[in-house]
Design a binder for these strands. Structure first.
Lengths: 195, 195
DNA sequence: GCCGGAACTTGTCAATGCCTAGATGCCGGG
DNA sequence: CCCGGCATCTAGGCATTGACAAGTTCCGGC
């Protein structure tokens, strides 16, 4: 569909082709370098073709964010406990850097988009259910804060990793493994409480 | 210099005027909405005037990042212990959202800029010295990971706060205070170890 | 077989980044 | 005092981009 028959008037799966190209550009050069006309050239279509599928440049980025939240929810759902959910969080960021960046930059996409909202709700639910199986101790207030703490830890690690700020601190060590032991240090200092 | 005498050929302090306007735009509409020509209009100068002070659009953002790291280093230096340094981290992000965003988006600025490098080194030093007064326990490996954990926690909280992801979790609560008790929960669960 | 709409193209316009050449006025040496 | 150098700012132009409008091609259902 994509590589052979290039003579047809219709592309076949232009939407996916544009999305994939966009992810490539964002991952390598950042969201600022994204150009609809450039993506059109890469796909071998006219400069206005992408607009038919995504309306806007913002529309394209909104689609990226929505797809990202969907993949994110799937990635989180597979993890057994809270710590592994954090590892999955970090792994997702490392595996899908373009999605991750766009997801957490509100000025790039339309946060009120319906598709994005449902995917985002699914991901949020996956996060919350992970926090649910925490230590039973503490008042409700503390439990909520603990959830925020876990989220902050994973999100901060993922963000710093993507921005290259952990390069020398990790020193070639595997990021996932580093986060696993880091989470152990933080959330279960002396006993298995964090589990 | 800035408001009264607008008839002079020379602006007086155009560089600062452009920087301030840029910070305003970035804080309200995000870095993507930044336009050199728009900033020139706001300052009442010609459309090419900003280029003389910052060379590029990237040059302007590099200057923002450099200024950000300098202010960041000052903010961190004032904190007495590790936890308050984390609070200062979060406060800086909340107080200087534009600086913070540009600082931690490598695709927006030139990371090898000399001015940026020295400011960044100063901020990094302020962070490291904060981690130094941690619990004496653990091998050197664990200590480094603990530092990364503290950094991740503060950075993640700050980032999530700026992206509006903590709005309902905090429920109108003061972010700094929330982070203070959150850090207590995380780094000193039952004893004063985290201090 | 035909026809309605989706997918894509072509053409256009305003805005932007960046470059070059020129105008202006400040500041210090003579 | 003045005059020449120079940083600062202006003016104009060019290529690229996002967005819009109108036309073209093709697929699938009736």
């Amino acid at each position: 569909m994509t590589s052979e028959r290039e003579r047809t008037y219709h592309h076949g799966d232009l939407r996916r082709a544009i999305l994939t190209a966009a992810l490539d550009v964002i991952a390598t050069e950042g969201p600022a370098a994204l150009s609809l006309r450039d993506l059109a050239r890469r796909a071998g279509v006219s400069h206005a073709a992408p607009a038919h599928h995504f309306k806007d440049r913002t529309g394209l980025l909104t689609a990226v964010a929505a797809e990202g939240y969907a993949l994110f929810a799937d990635a989180l759902a597979g993890a057994p406990d809270l710590r592994e959910r954090g590892v999955a969080y970090v792994r997702f960021a490392a595996t899908h850097p373009a999605h991750f960046q766009v997801m957490f930059q509100p000025d790039l996409h339309r946060a009120d988009d319906p598709d994005l909202l449902v995917a985002r709700a699914r991901a949020t639910e996956a996060l919350r259910s992970g926090v649910a199986d925490l230590p039973p101790a503490g008042r409700g207030e503390d439990d909520r804060l603990t959830g925020v703490a876990a989220w902050s830890l994973a999100h901060g690690f993922a963000t710093l990793l993507l921005t290259g700020n952990l390069a020398d601190a990790l020193a070639g060590r595997d990021p996932e493994e580093a986060f696993r032991s880091l989470a152990a240090l933080t959330f279960a200092p002396e006993d298995g409480r964090g589990r």
